[in-house]
Amino acid sequence: MNQSRQTLLTHWARQQLADPALQLTLISGDASFRRYYRGGGLIWVDAPPQTEKNGAFIQVAGALAAAGIPAPRVRQADLQQGFLAVTDLGDRQLLAELNDQTVAAWYAKAIAVLPRLAQLPLAAQLPAFDVDFMAVENSIFPQWLLERHLGLTLSRAERQLLADGFACLTDNNLAQPQVAMHRDYHSRNLMVVDDEALALLDFQDMVRGPLTYDLVSLLRDCYIRWPDAVIQDGQSQAYGLYQAAGLLAGYSRDEFAYAFDLTGLQRHLKAAGIFARLHHRDGKPGYLPDIPRTLDYVLQVAQRHEPLQDLAHWLSTRVLTHKELQCAP
C-alpha cells in the first residue's frame, strides 16, 4: 500500500471505531493487490476498487455466514475507496499445521466443508467457469511462463499441441456437475480458528464450475506436496460425501478420479503461469520456487492419460529441461 492509501485507511478505521489514536499493524499482502492490517480487534483490508472484487467478497461472505461456514464477516465497508473491516480469524494458517502425522485429520475437516460450499444457494448467481473464462486462464501459461519467463518461441505445431490439450481439459471441466467453486481452496486460504474448525479466506473470486476443482486445489496443493496415498484417501472421502449430497450426477469412482486428474492439470498450468506473472508483472518473485512442483503435478497426470501423453512428452523435453526450472519439485 502506498503511503497515501495507508493514511486514508487509518483515517477511515479511526472513524469507524471512534478511536483517533488507533494504530494499524501490517499483517501481509497476498498474490493480489490487497493488503491486510490488524487493529482494534478487526482486520482492515485495503482492496483497491480498480482491481479487487469487493462487492463479490461481501456477497459471498454473507452466503457463507448463512450456510454456517466459518469465514471473515464484514463489519464495515467503503466500496468507493476499497476499504473493508472484517472479523479477525487469527494467525493459524492451515499450511503451518500440516505434517505427516496431522494431514489426514486436517484434510478430512477441509473435505467435509466441500459439499456445503458446492451447494451455496448463490451458485446460480456466480460467474460461469465456461469456455471463455477458461480461454483467458489457459492463455496465462504460454504467455507468462513459456514466453516471458523461459523465453521460448513456440512453433505452430507446439501452439497446436497446447490448444488441443487445453481443449481436452476444457471439455472435462464442462462435463462435470457445475457447483459453487472457491477456486483457491488450499492450505494458505484455510485458517484454523479457536475451536479447531477451518475458516475460508480469499473467496471473492468464486465461480460456478466443475465439482472436482476445489478438491484438487486442496489435495494437489501448489505449496505443499503429499504422497499419492494421501491424495487417494482424500478422493475417496470426497466421493462418498458428494455422493451422499447427491452431487455426483451418476459419476463412477473411476470417472470421478479421471475428472479430478484433468481438472487439476488445467488448474496447475494456469497456476504455473500466474507464478511467473507475479514475478514479472507484479514484482513478487516469492512464488517462483513453487513452479517446478506445480509443473511436476502436470507432468505426472498427463503421462497417465493417453489423450495428454504427447503434451507430457513435450513438457518433459522442451519445458522442464529449461535451466530456470532445474530444482526439485
Rank of each mutant, 00 (worst) to 15 (best):
N54D: 06
G40L: 00
P20D: 09
I58H: 15
R35H: 13
G55A: 10
I58Y: 12
D46W: 05
R34T: 02
R35C: 06
L26A: 15
Y37W: 14
T25H: 15
K53A: 13
A21F: 12
G40D: 08
A31V: 04
A21G: 07
Q50V: 14
G55M: 07
R34G: 06
E52T: 02
I58G: 13
A63W: 07
I27A: 11
Q59M: 13
G39P: 12
V45N: 10
A65H: 13
A65P: 09
D30C: 09
A66E: 08
A31W: 00
V60W: 02
P20A: 09
Q23N: 14
A65D: 15
A47F: 03
F33D: 15
A56N: 10
R38E: 11
L42D: 09
Q59G: 07
Q59N: 12
A61I: 02
I27M: 12
Q50I: 12
R34N: 07
R35P: 04
F57D: 00
A61H: 01
P49V: 03
I27P: 04
G41V: 10
G39C: 11
P20K: 06
A61E: 01
K53W: 11
L42S: 10
L64I: 00
K53N: 12
V45P: 06
S32Y: 09
I58A: 15
Q50C: 09
L22Q: 14
S32T: 15
G41Y: 01
G41S: 12
R35Y: 02
D46M: 05
